[in-house]
Amino acid sequence: MSAAVQEAGGYNFAYLDEATKRMIRRAILKGLAIPGHQIPFGAREMPLPYGWGTGGIQLTASILGPRDRLKVIDQGADDTTNAVSIRRFFQRVAGVEVTTRTAEATVIQTRHRIPERHLTEGQVLVFQVPMPEPLFRLEPRLTEARRLHALGDYSLAQLRLYEDIARQGETGSSYNHPVMVNGRYLMSPSPIPGYDNPKLHRSAAILLFGAGREKKIYAVPPWTEVRSLDFDDHPFRPMLAAAPCAFCGSRDSYKDEIVSDDRGGRVFVCSDTDHCRENQS
């Protein structure tokens, strides 16, 4: 019996039982060994709803230890309701130290953003993933998508990209734009804005992706080549609001657009609240 069991109020440390953690840990290791390939896993029903980050929560619960400092963000911010809820969950069931500072965190669980600050070697970034299959809009059948991944046949995705460019002059996806990992697997980067895609390329941190409802785990090891799907004559071009942040003045950070009045007024502020705080101080 572990001392950590009592501390977590009757539940095991970090909520999951040890057999479940072992199963998830094995999947993480295989994910790292086969970058970008989706590993099926026996996702558990969590006390938070599917679609609200259960995949990310199961990953975080399986890697987290008492020496970690956890940061949880949603839409780039530590104080959005679901980030607050998930952070509280881990404080309750694992008693770990938490932080809002990207630089101080060892494990960062995120939904829809990659922090602006460069991540470092000691950090693990855990993504919450709604639809892990990058081909799902083109081929909803999992059996068929699995076959296409086995063959490395991504002509469907390339054709869609070509059609978008022919019709509207640019790619159709502004977020969750698929990436090629290590030149082999097409991967969903989760619904991060295209602006964040380049941060996946040769990241110093370990990137883990968890989809609870779809029961898939995948990973990108550090320093791995990650390229947004594009064509040589139409390179992938991330979108960024032109306005500077109303709080810190940053021009190169990703912004939230806030409607400030009913006469078309708009204010732009950094989506990454920790980055904005650092800029202001």
Binding site: E45, P49, Y50, G51, W52, T54, D74, Q75, G76, T80, T81, N82, R111, H112, R113, P130, Q168, G169, E170, G172, S174, Y175, N176, P191, I192, P193, G194, Y195, R213, M239, L240, A241, Y254, K255, D256, E257, S271
Partner: peptide, 28 residues
Amino acid sequence: VEATGFIEHLKLPHHVDFQSELEKLRSI
């Protein structure tokens, strides 16, 4: 339980991806 989770998760903030859609739509 899966279905209600995923449908209801649309209530969560999506302003980051919506923002990228806005920029995309304006550009197109």
